[in-house]
Amino acid sequence: MKNEIPGYIPEHIRTLLIKQSSTILSADEEEQLYNWYQTLDMIPAEDLLGSADREAEEKKRIWLGLEGKIQETTNTGIYRMKPWIWRGAAAVLLFVILGVGGQYLLHSKKTYQLEVATNIGKVQHLILPDGSQVWLNANSQLQYNNWKPGKAREVVLNGEAFFDIKQQAGQPFIIHTRAVDINVLGTSFNVKAYPEDATTETTLLTGKVQVVMKQEQGRKIQLEPSQKLVVQNNPELENIKKSSINKKHTTDTVSYLIDAPKMLTGDSNFVEVTWRERRLTFFNQPFEVIALQLQRWYGITVIFNDETMKNARFTGTFRDEPLTRVMTALQMSAPFNYRMSNDTLLIDK
């Protein structure tokens, strides 16, 4: 039905519209309105989408108005541009050190003069005495010394950090963690070595690193850029289930494996390092593992009243979102309930 009188509204619809202003319409009345809307089929006044040029112009015109509207209401800068810090990260020249096996034994006897520690939910950037840069994730500690020239640069990491190491000839850089030691010269990479996590992960972005696995009789693995080494923290307790690191349909267990870092579609950064942009990211991870991240991020304790939820997997990324919003988003992809009691988050079915 072509309704060719612009703006003509039948009398009974007028009555409904006026009524709608002050009261709630009945289901039947709502349906009448709905049906009237469906029959609205006017001959367009102008065809502004007739050519590609006009269409582009119309699209731009509406968008500009929209942008203006948004900016007007958000002068606090909510509508901000966010260049990804890592877009096009420059490659760093690398020098690989070989033959440093055995050095992983050193740190047990060593004492360190300097220690930087972060609280829950905090990230700290620091510059080491040699000019290397470190971003320390939440609830982590880094110990180091004022290194003298010509001596190995050694640090002890408990927790997670991203390293951008300055290359210095003859001065190897060694990171000691509980499960692995990492030998580097010039390179950037992420180390996740929280004692409460089941694994220690080394993700290499640029350069090369050599990882010494302490529980594997000092076995060394050399990583290439865009590789991730996952090492079991307590091999005697349980081996890594391959399924827990995104290798589905297998029950094989290993004490370490080389995996690829993960990237969300449309993102420009590996999931493993989004924390540096204050982003909390999950990539097909079980709730049980996500809970550990939430604990460090929000300073809460997570308790599962429903065991099955531990295995529910989630994917998503959040920037500066309150915990409630993260939980609401998670609830959208898997049905569960939660309660907050003091600083404890209880997950129910």
Binding site: G7, L40, M42, P44, A45, E46, L49, E58, I62
Partner: peptide, 20 residues
């Protein structure tokens, strides 16, 4: 989605100003 909505709105409203 702007275009499909635009075309739909064009049928329901009398002027392009209102559509925009």
């Amino acid at each position: 989605y702007w275009k499909i909505l635009y075309q739909q709105a064009l049928k329901k409203l009398a002027t392009t100003e209102e559509v925009r």
